[in-house]
Design a protein around this nucleic acid. Sequence first.
DNA 1: GTATCAAGTTAGCACCGTCTAACTTTTCAT
DNA 2: ATGAAAAGTTAGACGGTGCTAACTTGATAC
Lengths: 156, 156
Amino acid sequence: MKPVPAPLSAEDDLRSAETQAGAFQAVREARRSELAEDYVELIAELIAHFGEARPVDIASRLGVTAPTVAKTLDRLARDGLVMRARYRSVFLTDQGRALAEECRVRHDIVVRFLIRLGLDAETAEQDAEGIEHHVSARTLALFAAFAERRGQPETR
Amino acid sequence: MKPVPAPLSAEDDLRSAETQAGAFQAVREARRSELAEDYVELIAELIAHFGEARPVDIASRLGVTAPTVAKTLDRLARDGLVMRARYRSVFLTDQGRALAEECRVRHDIVVRFLIRLGLDAETAEQDAEGIEHHVSARTLALFAAFAERRGQPETR
DNA sequence: GTATCAAGTTAGCACCGTCTAACTTTTCAT
DNA sequence: ATGAAAAGTTAGACGGTGCTAACTTGATAC
Ligand SMILES: [Mn+2]
Ligand SMILES: [Mn+2]
Ligand SMILES: [Mn+2]
Ligand SMILES: [Mn+2]
């Protein structure tokens, strides 16, 4: 059957198929880089705090197994984000370091924003870990401005 | 080498490995349901506005090909969210309808929240499409409260 | 009624991200 | 120096999400 104009009640209009498809394509694109972003950000953290990033620590902090980490690190190396040597710790390339720094800044903005909104720190960290990958530059700017605002948090 | 306590400067402390792993696990869990959520929400929209949800329309609004939609719909049917008959439109099960409604409400809250923050409607829709899947109940409540607030939007 | 065209399906491929099991290498304590 | 434990690697499996090419079915126009 062909679509019928509207079934008696069509309160709000739909966006155009193209516009909607654009949004979904952007989300799929973001999903493709999420894992890489989390890895390089975590690797940078480990290097900053422990001097090196060992696969075993990456695994335990991500909550995945060692072979999963190994395979993912190989992909990241292939993509020019990390450098590896067998049985050694992992290091970031310049490109990896740049991405990590960008992610760290963005992550912190999202966390501070959520806390300023009134969320507890623990939940803020949890939600930020997912939200951060789907925040456009414009939105990030608004988050940053809100987070920096003077005055008490939005207590409820 | 074993991790050394700290490399001269360890300004901020790291969270425990377990806590951090918990956050990442929650994100991975959310990722597993993202696609299903987008599908049932879209199917509900199409049914509400056109009386039926045809695979070809699902495909064009998601920006993917017809075979991709077919395979995904089979998975959704397997998981009890939709019902299909060969060469026919797709329908939601009770479970699918319930999930779709939940997603619709959540999607709208996120969009209205972003707009209230000062974002343009177009970008709000784009970002919401990704963010919605990573918003906890607590955060959603804060978003809703902020969106409903009296007064002018946060113009910048 | 039949030809055509749109929609739907099937088969097959590729890559990602996860796991377990089994193996190798390195590190460390004695 | 050596043996045990920890860390790392490899192989193989599996499900998810995307694609193209080729086929089948259904809807439409004449
Ligand atoms: Mn993250
Ligand atoms: Mn992060
Ligand atoms: Mn979505
Ligand atoms: Mn949505």
